[in-house]
Simulated scan of single mutants.
Amino acid sequence: MSLRIIVVLAVLTGVTGSPSVTIRPVADSADMSTAHPNSVPETVEETEIFGQAELFEEEEAEEDVMATGELNPNHYPAQRAAKVVQHYLNTRYGSPYRLFGLQRVHSGNAEDVADSRRKYQLEISVQEMIGNTTEKCSAEVIFARGEQRSAQVQASCEALHKIDTKAQEEEFYQKYKKNPSLLSAQYLPDSYGHIEPDMKPLWHLGTVASSFIMLNESTENTLYNMAQVANVTQLPTENDQLKFDYHIALHEMVSQEIIHWKLLFTWSPAEGVKVLQMEQLPHCHDCEKPPNTN
């Protein structure tokens, strides 16, 4: 009798797997035990997968079925739409001292609307990453199918909009406006995932500016994350606006591609980020993947 019980338990274990397995993204850095502290996370809570690897196919099929109506908050349809809200908030309210990240999707619903569009209604938690302030927000994202057009986004996150960073922004602005030698820097973060403290506002500013690209490029089938500032050059100030030339690397999480872009933009505390030029650079076969892009 005891032998039969052991056999049955072994079979059940092989079918269902461990009930506490968590799949986490793996960084490319040699030290995979430490995630880069300034990278914007996909969510704080990562999806738990029950069973063995072959169940991923079942999950993908389930995602497709759930893409209309109530959504699983941990599955791609809800996560992708919510990530677009993060990019939207950064384009509207981001600065060198105010950076928004998606913390959690609480609920979501998707429906087909007129003109082959898809509308997602979401309840999410958004975190201001620098000041570590979190707010629950309601958002609506509408994707246009069959064409490359920016998603339409509406989001109600009133408390996050009111975070006061004016003093830090003004100090940053005056520092670089009066800087006799124009700034130039590379590899934020470096190959060890490190950013010097005085360079962090430039990383934040590059992340905010890159959200204009990610918002413009995002579809129902993409999931973008900022990977690295490969190069930043300060240009002469124009009309009281700081001007920057950035070469950035984005990580498209679905295809696992690293996509390089050139960004020319201005910034001031009063005007925020104003993008003058966005140019996707040719694919670099010999380029190394930046560290900790997940």
Rank of each mutant, 00 (worst) to 15 (best):
Q186R: 03
A139W: 02
E58I: 10
Q154C: 01
T237K: 15
D245P: 00
G108N: 04
A151S: 09
Y120R: 04
K119A: 15
D115V: 04
E257P: 00
F172A: 03
A81Q: 05
M278R: 12
T165L: 07
D31G: 03
H106M: 06
T22G: 14
P201L: 09
M32A: 13
L242W: 13
F244G: 02
C284R: 14
T233N: 14
R118Q: 05
Q127I: 00
H75V: 00
E271M: 10
N74D: 09
E170Q: 08
I213F: 04
L215C: 08
S20A: 11
H161T: 10
A155V: 10
K200S: 02
S181L: 15
T207G: 06
D28Y: 08
N225C: 01
I124W: 04
V21S: 15
E123N: 12
H285E: 13
N221W: 11
S150V: 04
P77W: 02
A139R: 08
C157K: 02
R104I: 00
R98M: 13
I23T: 03
N109D: 07
C157G: 01
A159W: 04
V113E: 12
T222G: 01
R118C: 03
N225P: 00
L12R: 14
N221Y: 12
Q148Y: 06
C157D: 01
A227I: 04
D286Q: 09
E59A: 11
S156F: 02
P25K: 00
Q103D: 10
A61Y: 07
I258W: 03
D190C: 11
L3E: 11
L160Q: 05
L235S: 13
L215G: 08
K166F: 03
E196I: 01
H75N: 02
A155H: 09
L99V: 04
M199T: 02
T47M: 14
D286W: 08
S125T: 12
L182A: 14
T13H: 11
K274I: 02
E147K: 06
Y246S: 05
Y224T: 00
R118E: 01
T165V: 13
S210H: 12
N109T: 06
A249E: 10
V40F: 11
A151H: 05
V21R: 15
I124E: 08
S150L: 04
A81C: 09
G94H: 02
G17A: 05
V85Y: 02
A230W: 00
R24S: 15
F244Q: 01
Q154I: 01
L160S: 05
N179F: 10
S116R: 12
A167Y: 13
R149W: 01
Q256T: 06
C157I: 03
V11Y: 12
E59H: 08
Q256N: 10
E62C: 07
D190E: 10
A27P: 05
M66N: 06
V44H: 15
M199S: 06
